Simulated scan of single mutants.
Amino acid sequence: MRPEILILGGTTEGYALAAALADHPRFTPVSSLAGRTSSPRLPAGESRIGGFGGPEGLAAWLRQRGTAAVVDCTHPFASRMGWNAATACAGLGLPLLRVERPAWRPGPEDAWDEVDEWDQAVERLAALGARRVLLALGRQDLAPFAALDRVWFLIRSVEPPEPMPPFAQAEILLARGPFSAEDERALLAGRQIDALVCKNSGGSATDAKLAVARELGVRVVMRRRPPRPATPTVATVAEALDWLARTLAD
């Protein structure tokens, strides 16, 4: 029986790793999705949706399944799952790998304001005097911005916010990336956006907005990534496959 690999997924890297392991001669993938959207795209192989019940619940699940290793491919801002995985794997003596895409970094022509919390982003927008702002965030992160009642917000989200925070001026745009530079240029220029708020997710699926913001002189308020546990980390699926082969060598 091939050793089972738990993939904490939901990201581009998670889907790619599941696809690579689905036909692998040595390993069997099982993907775990958080279930933040109502109709998530399912990865190749077996999958499960929903939480484990903290590190204790995850450890019990891993023990019961006889999992050989865990690969954390969660979003850079899904930090709680990363800490739960580190605690559970340390307690069981299981190998744990983090696959994390490189963070975006500003160039000399970028106008970025980097913050650690959304309250800081709200303060920064007020200080900048922003008037038309694109919020390219998850729907769980919107509430702090409703305090800016003199700002018009364009809220881009995969699904509608429930409940909708009490924005004085806001429009919801339901859309899922990747977004092309042409689309982002039409959006930012057409809606006269003067500031963009986003997370430092990294990757290429949604980075076109940053290039267009640079081109149009749009200010970017960027939230830094939260801290992660000290875990072996790679940047690509190919490196993850190599790590699995070496770590679980016969």
Rank of each mutant, 00 (worst) to 15 (best):
R48V: 11
P227L: 09
T236Y: 02
G203H: 05
I155L: 15
V30L: 15
M81I: 15
W83T: 14
R219I: 01
G129E: 05
C73W: 02
H75L: 09
E117V: 04
C198R: 05
R63A: 09
E56T: 13
E109I: 00
R132T: 10
V133L: 08
Q64L: 13
R105K: 10
E46C: 06
W243C: 00
A69S: 03
E162M: 12
A249D: 07
F52H: 14
R131G: 15
G14K: 12
P102A: 06
L134T: 12
C198P: 00
L174A: 08
H24G: 02
A136C: 10
G177R: 12
P3V: 07
L196K: 12
M164H: 12
L210W: 05
L6T: 08
P29S: 08
C198K: 04
W104K: 00
A249T: 06
D183S: 14
K209V: 08
P102Y: 09
P227M: 07
L94E: 03
L196Y: 11
G190E: 07
P178L: 06
F167S: 04
S204H: 13
P43C: 07
A20R: 14
L210N: 05
A230W: 00
W61T: 08
P25R: 06
W83A: 14
A59E: 12
P108R: 09
L58W: 10
G93H: 14
L94Q: 04
A18W: 04
F27E: 06
V234W: 10
E114F: 01
P3G: 03
V122A: 10
A88S: 04
K209A: 11
T231F: 08
L148D: 08
G53C: 01
Q120R: 04
A175Y: 01
G93I: 11
A121T: 11
L97I: 01
G203M: 02
R101D: 05
A175N: 02
L97V: 02
T233S: 13
V151H: 04
V158L: 15
V151M: 04
R80A: 08
G14Q: 11
A143N: 03
R26C: 09
L134V: 12
R156G: 03
A121W: 11
W104G: 00
A130E: 03
S79Y: 12
P43H: 08
V99S: 08
S39F: 05
V212N: 03
T87C: 08
V218A: 07
T28I: 01
V220M: 03
L248K: 03
A245V: 11
A235D: 14
G177E: 06
S201A: 14
S180W: 05
E117G: 00
V237A: 09
M81H: 02
P229A: 07
S32P: 02
E4L: 09
D113I: 15
P160Q: 01
L92N: 06
D113C: 13
A19M: 06
P227Q: 13
A213Y: 04
W118T: 08
R219G: 00
G45I: 05
F27L: 07
E182P: 01
A130Y: 07
T11H: 02
Q64E: 15
G66R: 14
V122L: 09
R219P: 00
R41I: 15
H24F: 03
E171S: 10
T87N: 03
P76I: 05
A60E: 15
P55K: 03
A121K: 11
G10P: 12
T231I: 15
Q169P: 02
D250L: 13
E239W: 06
E162V: 13
E215L: 10
